[in-house]
């Protein structure tokens, strides 16, 4: 199909982009990788009258690690993360996710920040953002503000980014050496949305008890969810099989999926628990540890 007609602007700085967004209001949209927006426009599910293209915004193309934080700009592609040695070495969860977002072709265009801002209820990155305790920097004509993952994710396809604003940077805390992580996703084929997926990040104390746990699940509700009850169960505990079962049950309890071509609600609810369990087990394995008896 053909998109409805629209005007096209190219912004060369965040200031310019924010100014254009302010000028054109709610019907304007930022075009980054375009991997969700353009298909939606072709089906006329989205009909923005103005597109603000940021692909030429060279200053937004950075991945930097400093002071225990990873900072990523607005035009960084999923493939940049997938092929980054820094990410592969230090950011297990992000590395896992960047291997399985959509398909390789999409990853060469799609951006991390674009995906987070799109906030598809079946997206991979929102679940990872929750588990990793990442943050977003949002800019408007008056300046910038920092928003935590929990506040950033508001509703289906809705984030804390308001009209006239642009998400310019996302910040991911650098995991300690005692951190293991895993992204468990099942999909019908490469490039499909997840049937269900779970992002798990576990930081252990020297004695093997859990210092901090992050669990995000996606494709099982109207937005990605943080399994806070499950995280609480893990904190301070040795990871046993029974504990994993209890955490998995928390994930299944929270999940409120819809039935679609990917599966029934019952199946998704049950399997997301299995994925959380597998995520916990793989996180431990990656730290060279096993599930306690």
């Amino acid at each position: 199909m053909f998109p409805a007609s629209f005007d096209f602007y190219r912004a060369h700085s965040a200031e310019e982009a924010v100014s254009l967004l302010g000028e054109h209001g709610a019907d304007s949209r930022i075009l980054a990788g375009g991997q969700s927006l353009i298909p939606a426009m072709r089906y006329r599910l989205a009909q923005p009258t103005v597109l603000v293209d940021i692909n030429q915004m060279q200053a937004a193309n950075y991945i930097t690690e400093e002071n225990g934080e990873l900072r990523i700009g607005a035009t960084v592609r999923d493939s940049d993360l997938e092929f980054s040695d820094l990410i592969r070495t230090n950011y297990q969860l992000m590395s896992d996710v960047s291997d399985v977002v959509a398909d390789p072709i999409v990853r060469f265009r799609g951006t991390l920040i674009g995906s987070l801002c799109h906030n598809d209820p079946s997206g991979d990155w929102p679940a990872a953002m929750l588990a990793a305790r990442a943050k977003m920097i949002i800019q408007n004509k008056d300046g910038k503000r920092v928003v935590n993952a929990d506040e950033f994710i508001v509703d289906s396809f809705t984030t804390a980014v308001e009209e006239g604003e642009m998400a310019v940077e996302t910040i991911w805390p650098t995991p300690s050496k005692n951190t293991g992580a895993s992204y468990q996703k099942i999909e019908r084929k490469v490039g499909d949305y997840a049937t269900a997926a779970a992002a798990v990040q576990l930081e252990l104390n020297e004695d093997g008890t859990v210092k901090e746990a992050g669990i995000g699940i996606t494709a099982v509700s109207y937005v990605a969810l943080r399994v806070a009850e499950g995280e609480a169960l893990l904190r301070g505990q040795k990871v046993t099989r029974n504990l994993i079962k209890a955490v998995a049950a928390e994930a299944s309890k929270m999940a409120d999926p819809i039935a679609d071509g990917r599966g029934s609600a019952e199946y998704k609810k049950e399997v997301v628990g299995v994925l959380v369990a597998k995520g916990i087990m793989q996180s431990l394995e990656r730290l060279g540890r096993k599930v306690e008896a």
Binding site: I186, R188, E270, V271, A277
Partner: peptide
């Protein structure tokens, strides 16, 4: 043959997932 069909049959047969 989706994962769900196989998953359901295994669960119905009492096979534990993990």
């Amino acid at each position: 043959i989706s994962r769900e069909k196989v998953f359901s049959k295994l669960r119905a047969a009492g096979v534990e997932a993990f």
